[in-house]
């Protein structure tokens, strides 16, 4: 088959506290590496929005990706009660005016350190559901029980679980079976034949390509799809069509 054209749901740029040798942080290095990997478009967030402050990082993101039509902004969001972040209505207003169509959260104690229970985030999840805005959240940020609670309490919220590991199938399979609004990013689908197994059991529509760059190698993530023993149509869905469809449904 021809090389796939990837649409990446999970990459970032910007200075970070730790930059491993061989990695990068500059925007131009991200776009160079995207080209090397065959990634044509990407949803990107700014590392400052994760490692420093969502408001500051999201603002930097918008300024720095201006003039890069292949890069689509993802804002890092958090609850508003401490006045550190937009209220849900302000968030929607600003996302609409700045054409932002996806959000990420980093609630773990090591990151932005807040509860993701409904008493804290329910209002936010509610408004994301109302506008069909997809939420990307890492498997290292949230428990399996929390995923179940969020997806059952907010059945119209599309939750894309990123950064899974090959050790999670025994919990992910029952969640995928019970939660039609749960999607899996493929970068960590590293159980042996994991992509094939998930396609067969739950359908290729539940898998969204992500690279994890610049923390993880984009070439590893693309090889997982290019070499998967699934049909070409399934590969195209995973590589980009599923993400495209999710973003088309955003009502902003």
């Amino acid at each position: 088959m021809q090389s796939l054209e990837f649409f990446d749901c999970n990459c970032s740029f910007g200075m970070r506290a730790i930059v491993n040798p061989g990695s990068f942080y500059k925007l131009e290095d991200l776009t160079d590496n995207m080209e090397h990997c065959g990634i044509k478009r990407a949803l990107v967030y700014h590392s400052m929005a994760r490692e420093y402050n969502p408001m500051v990082g999201n603002d930097m993101l918008m300024k720095e990706i201006e003039g890069h039509p292949s890069l689509y902004p993802v804002w890092v969001v958090m609850p508003h009660y401490t006045d550190e972040f937009y209220t849900p209505n302000e968030l929607i207003y600003n996302m609409k005016s700045q054409r932002v169509r996806a959000v990420k959260m980093f609630p773990s104690p090591a990151d932005q350190n807040y509860s993701i229970s409904d008493w804290n985030c329910g209002e936010l999840f509610g408004i994301l559901s109302d506008f069909n805005i997809p939420l990307f959240i890492g498997a290292n940020q949230i428990s399996f029980d929390e995923i179940y609670s969020i997806c059952t309490a907010h059945p119209n919220l599309k939750l894309i679980l990123t950064d899974i590991t090959y050790r999670m199938d025994r919990n992910l399979y029952p969640l995928l079976k019970r939660l039609p609004n749960l999607y899996i990013e493929t970068m960590g689908c590293k159980a042996h034949d994991g992509i094939e197994m998930m396609c067969k059991k739950f359908g290729a529509e539940r898998l969204i390509f992500g690279s994890g760059m610049p923390i993880y190698p984009g070439i590893a993530a693309t090889a997982m799809i290019s070499y998967a023993n699934i049909s070409d149509d399934e590969k195209k869905l995973i590589a980009g069509a599923n993400l495209q469809n999710i973003l088309k449904e955003v009502k902003l």
Binding site: Y166, K190, H192
Partner: peptide
């Protein structure tokens, strides 16, 4: 393999 899938490590080398 098969502790985990070989494709990502293979890709890391093949497209390095």
């Amino acid at each position: 393999m098969p502790f985990y899938d070989p494709r990502h490590t293979f890709g890391r080398i093949a497209m390095a």
